[in-house]
Design a protein around this nucleic acid. Structure first.
Lengths: 194, 194
DNA sequence: TAGATTTCTTAATCTAGATTATTGGCGCCA
DNA sequence: TGGCGCCAATAATCTAGATTAAGAAATCTA
């Protein structure tokens, strides 16, 4: 059963009766993704929120030069979606793919809207996780405005300690906003200091 | 009466009965701010959400070199707070001050929590405005990762057309993340092209 | 197992934007 | 009326990080 993780995730913020819990779980789809497989591609309309139960996904965009800019990594116990596209139901700009073989649970936009009406506690749940996302997004924006590349790398290491070793460096470089060459140089300098 | 603006803001997302509306309005405090006056300073605990009815506020942090980094401008009809501090009730890092003489309506954290219990529709309201904040925060993060200074300036002009003329250039420079000197140079180049 | 593909490193060169300094304009107010 | 403080413009110099290139190492694939 891959459901205990999501049930536990929700119970951090709201308390569901067994029936409510069963109803919620019945709405969830399940999808396996192979490494490099897309959950969502630029230009598509995002129709689901995804909750990761295994593996690791990433959300990124391509700029006009074809460079990848990573908005978010999603290891297990995290939610991921193209929020803009999900909310507006317009074609989005986010690509979401799997960095390794992964499994996600899917909640459709339609079911989510209905859930707000059937079990209003879910308004609270999604309000709180949206607040948390907002906090981390703002913190990252501040980091990108006020820290240099080395400080951003250190911040990344603190925030995602589990990912440093399992992720290829070019992914980390794209996340902190430098070229892989420059990250390599920084790492060499950090090593030399110790 | 400064209340019609906030009532109208809320009615975009939820429908309140006259009694609910009156109750909500009765919770609001009112504060006038002179130009340069602080609503909140670094190190304080943020105890209110503020809704701007007149003037313009800004939220910014100071980095280790004393440089200002502007997270948000808040013209009338916008909400502003140090979300991190408001949610955690820990001392925050945000400074919020008035760029011109302004008026805000204040909703205390305590009243906001109680409002969620008394009128659950407010869960929905704040979920939606938090979602919208998240969208704009992510978009700005992407801009800062993928656009150069000139493109960020153009994006700013599109997003805050009303502010371009009433704000001193150093505020705009701090927002888009360049020095005032460089903004001046870019503006000169843009003029030359036309 | 070889060959192909991707990842990481190092190094030389280049550039967007920072830093520092100087100037002039403009409002403020004693 | 003049002096003071703030703001914007310009220009010279400097630097963090990009770009380009090339080789070594690791991983995939047949």
């Amino acid at each position: 059963m891959p459901y205990h993780l999501i049930v536990q995730n929700i119970s951090k913020y709201i308390r569901l009766s067994p029936e409510e819990e069963a109803h919620f779980v019945s709405l969830l789809g399940r999808q396996h993704l192979k490494k490099k497989q897309f959950l969502l591609q630029e230009g598509e309309v995002c129709r689901h929120s995804a909750f990761v139960t295994r593996g690791c996904l990433r959300g990124y965009t391509l700029d006009s030069n074809g460079l990848e800019h990573i908005l978010q990594f999603a290891p297990p116990d995290w939610w991921i979606a193209d929020m803009y596209s999900l909310l507006s139901q317009q074609p989005g700009t986010l690509n979401i793919d799997a960095l390794e073989d992964s499994e996600v649970l899917l909640l459709s936009k339609k079911d989510q809207e209905q859930l707000y009406l059937d079990i209003p506690k879910f308004e609270r749940f999604f309000r709180i996780i949206t607040e948390n996302s907002l906090l981390s997004s703002r913190q990252r924006l501040l980091d990108s405005l006020s820290l240099n590349a080395q400080q951003r790398y250190e911040a990344f290491c603190q925030r995602y300690p589990s990912l440093i070793h399992c992720l290829p460096q070019k992914q980390i470089a794209a996340y902190i906003g430098v070229t892989p060459e420059f990250l390599s140089k920084m790492r060499a300098e950090l090593l030399r200091k110790k």
